[in-house]
Design a binder for these strands. Structure first.
Lengths: 202, 202
DNA sequence: GTCTATATAATGATAGAC
DNA sequence: GTCTATCATTATATAGAC
């Protein structure tokens, strides 16, 4: 299974060989918010990475928060793209859940270095009040809703919501520990445990 | 009330009931790093909360990083204090593990609002290179070592390290989701699942 | 030891020429 | 649409009076 985000195709209204500046800014922000954190990343960092002069950023986004919201949308788009590709490739709900878990095997090294991009922003903001944190938190909701639907389709209707949380808790907890201790192996181990658990479900 | 430098010296050295300015700064930093994150917290914030003039902070700590290291030591001390009290109160290793899990029931509301204080700093720094993040990550190591020792004493020698990681992954994953979704209930549910799992172990 | 004042750099954000 | 120059604010950190 391979999931390739293709932001420029999604956001460009016309066929362009070159990603627009706005797209480049969103890509740069999304990446830097992941690797450095949203508070440690300045608009200058983002502008430089995107190859756009600092003052020009404000032509596309009226504030850093707006750029943060765009980055949250980008993360949401990536998750939805992943889930959609899993639905196309895996027939049964159980296989889809297993594939959704195993996907994180492909990003474990990045997670061990920088953590989960959604966790990074949700942890360094207050999602209860911060608009950007709130928007990033919606990515978790989307993930949980999808997992819950799969468990429900599997026949675990009564426990589908709880099972969905168990899966995401495992992935996120492992991601956090992996980053703190610098160990991708922690992620592999937890993913394997989750897969075994799902496959042994009725 | 104002006091002379001589009295101040006496107070901090011999009368422990009056917290010294250094202690107040560490307490303020520890709390603000938890609730606001280390990057969003300025030395001015810390100084004001501790009731110390900004310029005076540098008499006690030569940089923000040094204050961050002191806050990490404070978190380590709190964990060690918790683990020590669990050892005094619980007889069997299984009971100690269960008590170590159930402890987080008492902080679930704070976790749901601000996340875990250790996760907060480990997530917003790069523990692989950042000295403060590295120091906070040691709190996780201490927790894992203690859990592993308990599982080992229980008889799960072969799987003790993995079991320890499973417990901390569950606690941390639940803490992160609880903060993102504003739901202490997510923590309660996961803690109960972990307790059930431990109690059913051989 | 304590505190005011300040240096210096970086930040988010604007103004306005082209 | 693009870019330079710059404002206002805030950050870490220092100097030096008391």
């Amino acid at each position: 299974m391979r999931y390739t985000p293709n932001l420029s195709q999604l956001t460009s209204k016309f066929f362009m060989n070159d990603a627009s500046k706005k797209t480049k800014l969103i890509e740069a922000a999304t990446q830097l918010f992941h690797t450095q954190g949203i508070n440690a990343t300045s608009l200058k960092d983002i502008a430089e990475k995107a190859g756009v002069p600092l003052g020009n950023v404000y032509y596309y986004f009226k504030s850093k928060d707006e750029l943060g919201l765009a980055a949250a949308e980008e993360q949401m788009g990536r998750l939805k793209g992943l889930l959609k590709s899993l639905e196309e490739q895996s027939q049964s709900p159980k296989k889809r859940i297993v594939a959704a878990i195993r996907f994180f095997e492909s990003v474990k090294d990045r997670f061990a270095q920088f953590g989960c991009p959604v966790a990074q922003v949700c942890q360094s903001t207050l999602p209860a009040t911060d608009v950007v944190g709130k928007s990033y938190a919606n990515v978790y909701r989307e993930h949980l809703d999808w997992l819950e639907a799969q468990f429900s389709e599997m026949g675990c209707k009564k426990d589908s919501a709880q099972y969905a949380r168990q899966v995401l808790i495992g992935i996120q907890g492992a991601g956090l520990l992996a980053k703190a201790l610098g160990s991708p192996q922690i992620i592999s181990e937890e993913l394997e445990r989750l897969v075994q658990w799902v496959q042994n479900l009725a």
